[in-house]
Design a protein around this nucleic acid. Structure first.
Length: 802
RNA sequence: GCUGGUAUGGUGGAAUCGGCAGACACAAGGGACUUAAAAUCCCUCGGUAGCAAUACCGUGCCAGUUCAAGUCUGGCUACCAGCACCA
């Protein structure tokens, strides 16, 4: 009776599919549970060993919940639009649709081979017109509510993908996907007004159970800051509004800086004596990429505006105005007051241009560096603020400036609107028609889905237009409003569109009347547990929270937040501790592992590898330990004795194991849950036999981790009705988890000197007496003066001597 | 620079509230079985000293609190991730 993983795993995949045990029902009396993993992008490389880490973890949760009596929805689908597929299609002259189909077929086979308990009857695909019909429908809702708009603006342009990128997709000045250089380009782009939701995206983090690091990262990205907008007069009689978070330091403002794009500079062109130099500087700045402009290490540059000065509203003094690219036009008012004594950037600039540095908060040495501490330090050289703390000064100056009518408090966010168009083929067409008379007109709902036309060439164009622009038959249409000739929008949506609402479609995937019925959304709302990668924190996770909130506002979705609980798995690294990649040659193919060791071993290994939330290097030798464990479990069948009960000597161990495993699964400590099972198995092995009752209980516990082998053992040894996965999750008896006699440690001054076996419920005085009676202890304390005696119940006695 | 995190044997990692550091594995070494190998089973496995019982040292570094610190406090160092001229 050999453990033949290949045969038995395939057998159970078929059985699960035939019986439909993992299908969720929209009509059930049971309590619902919605478990979700990030649906994969079906890339040409096939499944990565990182995928099963997340899928298996949530599979364990889903399987446990079913056994606990819940109606569980654990769905799967394909996030299939995107550039790699399109690039592959171009290179190999195959339609992206075909490439997608092939990739999905491979992924599906791989996922099935892992034995994840997905409900395959709800499989979705973002590139299916029946799916993207609703992606387009949501876009039209955004458009009709003024949250989708087209704007001429400077965008991030990937030189290799020949396509614009959202701010979230630019990593260190490079493309998130291909790493190529990203440059600035002015283009007319569709934008989504995510900034309208900035505050709520922060506030509603209080409603959800996300890891702190995820919440912190989202808050960071949204970047809320409270400051003041203050009007500075100029010698030309104009007003320059500046934004500052440190109004308390205003007496120390010795100059001002405007960003090169600030409109007042153009307006002043006749008054500026050095306009030629300024124009040259502006041109220079415009040429730079965002990355170059925001590089911190570089030296500050700038030009003084000769002929115009600002006036510090507190001191009344004239101060010079500079133009410099260290001030960004897109944040605040595009102009600042500079307080070199208390701002590192202003300090650098002031040093270079030899501008006065006036200390207004005591405590630092402004001659050497900017002093930015706000907790200690008293105001000086600051008129009405002298002698106050920074905190007090802030309050006082805010009310003063407000009274004077020259300033008001203002909240600013770093978050920018979401650049939503892409100049590529393989994405959802944006359902808008441009009419000379009517402007931008929505494609009527009854014409959705607006399907991607078949094109001969999907090559991105060098002029920055979508390949769709070449399809004259498709582009030329009539205006739905006036009937005149009009042109279709040729840009497509970014990959993030389809994934921004997919969790809703799973609730009711075959609905042709709505994205999902309101009953279905009511029943399944919201996702109970969502696991995914940290890399999506400021992309997919933020975007889908935004769409959900919008759909909630217009009455489509009945809940404010899509995901009640989010967890994040660590990456699986290559054997050398580096990120797995083809170029590093350290990629492990899950197919190879499954072929050699079986899916159950793969699952056990990936759950045992270490802390679920941390990165872990792959180890080919360690995986053998997981296989050995399953072999030993398999071999229990040959030493089984036909007796239904648990033997007394194992009662405690089993009850403790149920408790530990039940708790560990909930807190993502799969590694220690498996360690508990290993220890329990070792204990049983040492006794030389296992009762049927013990094997039954062990199989139920192991089943969520290694389902195939457990079903097989369950069936062969005739352990119970139906399949293990349909069995009830066991409960434990708290009383049986407690040992009757325990070993306690006896310490002298905190150093271990002896061990004692005592009754678990021993009184403190009796424990101490027993400790003192111990031969070794008695000898050591005989001559000594005892200062203190401590008994920690169930743990130790500590005798402190002089 | 800011935010979040991490640091424990040869390796991956355990260790509720401060209470036996190293669970569970991997690797390594030794042994049994075997003609042999693989597989399996048994033993050893943080360091130093010792025949041994045992003693001392040991959780990145330096202090502190405590009967007792991997765990708490203060101060560092290194690394990982995210953000970064956001005023």
């Amino acid at each position: 009776m050999k453990y033949e993983h290949k045969i038995l795993e395939e057998k159970w995949h078929k059985k699960w599919e035939q019986t439909g045990v993992f299908h969720a029902s929209n009509e059930s009396d049971k309590e619902k549970y919605y478990a979700l993993i990030e649906f994969p992008y079906p890339s040409g490389q096939g499944l990565h060993v990182g995928h099963p880490r997340s899928y298996t973890a949530i599979d364990i949760i889903a399987r446990k919940r079913r056994m606990q009596g819940y109606n569980v929805l654990y769905p799967i689908g394909w996030d299939a639009f995107g550039l790699p597929t399109e690039n592959f299609a171009i290179k190999n002259h195959i339609h992206p649709k075909i490439v997608t189909e092939q990739n999905i077929a491979r992924f599906k086979k791989q996922l099935i081979s892992l034995g994840i308990s997905f409900d395959w009857s709800r499989e979705i695909n973002t590139t299916d017109p029946e799916y993207y019909k609703w992606t387009q429908w949501i876009f039209l809702q955004l458009f009709q509510h003024g949250l989708a708009y087209k704007k001429e603006m400077a965008v991030n342009w990937c030189t290799s993908c020949k396509c614009v990128l959202a701010n979230e997709e630019v990593i260190n000045g490079g493309c998130e996907r291909c790493g190529s250089e990203v440059v600035r380009k002015t283009k007319s782009q569709w934008m989504l007004k995510i900034t309208a939701y900035a505050q709520r995206l922060i506030d509603d983090l209080d409603l959800v159970d996300f890891p702190d690091r995820v919440k912190a990262q989202q808050k960071n990205w949204i970047g809320r800051s409270t400051g003041m907008q203050v009007k500075f007069a100029t010698t030309t009689g104009d007003i320059v509004e500046i934004y500052t978070t440190r109004p308390d330091t205003m007496y120390g403002a010795t100059y001002m800086v405007m960003s090169p794009e600030h409109p007042l500079i153009e307006a002043w062109k006749d008054k500026l004596s050095n306009m030629d130099v300024i124009c040259a500087y502006k041109e220079e700045a415009a040429k730079k990429s965002d990355f170059e402009r925001t590089e911190v290490v570089k030296e500050k540059t700038g030009v003084e505006l000769k002929g115009v000065s600002g006036i510090n509203p507190l001191t009344g003094k004239e101060i010079p105005i500079f133009v410099s690219d260290y001030v960004l036009v897109s944040y605040g008012t595009g102009a600042i007051m500079a307080v070199p004594a208390h701002d590192a950037r202003d300090w650098d600039f002031a040093k270079k241009f030899q501008l006065p540095i006036i200390e207004v908060v005591q405590g630092g040495n402004p001659k050497k560096e900017a002093y930015t501490e706000t907790q200690k330090g008293i105001m000086v050289n600051s008129g009405i603020l002298n002698g106050l703390t920074v905190e007090q000064a802030k309050k006082k100056i805010i009310s003063y400036l407000e009274e004077q009518g020259i300033g008001h408090t203002k909240v600013n966010f770093k978050l920018r609107d979401w650049v939503f168009s892409r100049q590529r083929y393989w994405g959802e067409p944006i359902p808008i028609i441009h009419c000379d008379k009517c402007g931008q007109v929505a494609v009527p709902e009854n014409q959705l889905p607006l399907e991607l036309p078949d094109v001969d060439s999907y090559e991105p164009t060098d002029n920055g237009e979508s390949p769709l622009a070449k399809m004259q038959d498709w582009v030329n249409t009539t205006c739905p409003k006036c009937g005149n000739a009009a042109k279709r929008e040729t840009d497509t949506m970014p990959q993030w569109a389809g994934s921004s609402w997919y969790y809703l479609r799973y609730m009711d995937p075959h609905n042709s009347e709505a994205l999902a019925s309101s009953q279905a959304m009511q029943y399944w709302a919201s996702v109970n547990w969502y696991n995914g990668g940290m890399e999506h924190t400021t992309l997919h996770l933020l975007y889908s929270r935004f769409w959900n909130k919008f759909l909630y506002d217009i009455g489509i979705v009945p809940f404010k937040e899509p995901y009640a609980k989010r967890t994040s798995h660590g990456m699986i690294l290559g054997e050398n501790g580096e990120k797995m990649s083809k170029s590093r040659g350290n990629v492990v193919n899950p197919d190879d592992i499954i072929r050699e060791y079986g899916a159950d071993t793969m699952r056990i290994y990936e759950m045992f590898i270490g802390d679920f939330e941390k990165a872990a290097p792959w180890s080919t030798s360690s995986i053998k330990g997981s296989r050995r464990f399953l072999e030993r479990f398999w071999n229990l069948q040959s030493i089984m004795i036909n007796e239904d009960s648990l033997r007394i000597k194992f009662e405690g161990s089993f009850h403790k194991a149920i408790k530990k495993i039940s708790e560990d699964i909930e807190t993502l400590k799969f590694n220690t849950a498996i360690a508990t099972l290993m220890a329990l198995l070792n204990e049983i092995y040492d006794s030389g036999s296992v009762t049927k009752g013990e094997l039954t209980l062990f199989t139920i516990l192991l089943n969520v981790f290694a389902p195939h082998i457990c079903e097989e053992v369950w069936e062969r040894s005739n352990l119970g009705e139906g399949m293990v996965c349909q069995h009830v999750w066991p409960t434990y008896d708290e009383e049986k988890c407690v040992d009757k006699t325990i070993e306690i440690v006896v310490q002298i001054c905190g150093k271990i000197r002896s061990r004692l076996k005592v009754a678990a419920d021993i009184e403190a005085s009796a424990a101490i007496a027993a400790a003192k009676a111990d031969k070794k202890i008695a000898l050591e304390i005989a001559e000594e003066q005892i200062i203190k005696e401590i008994y920690v119940p169930g743990k130790l006695v500590n005798i402190v001597i002089k």
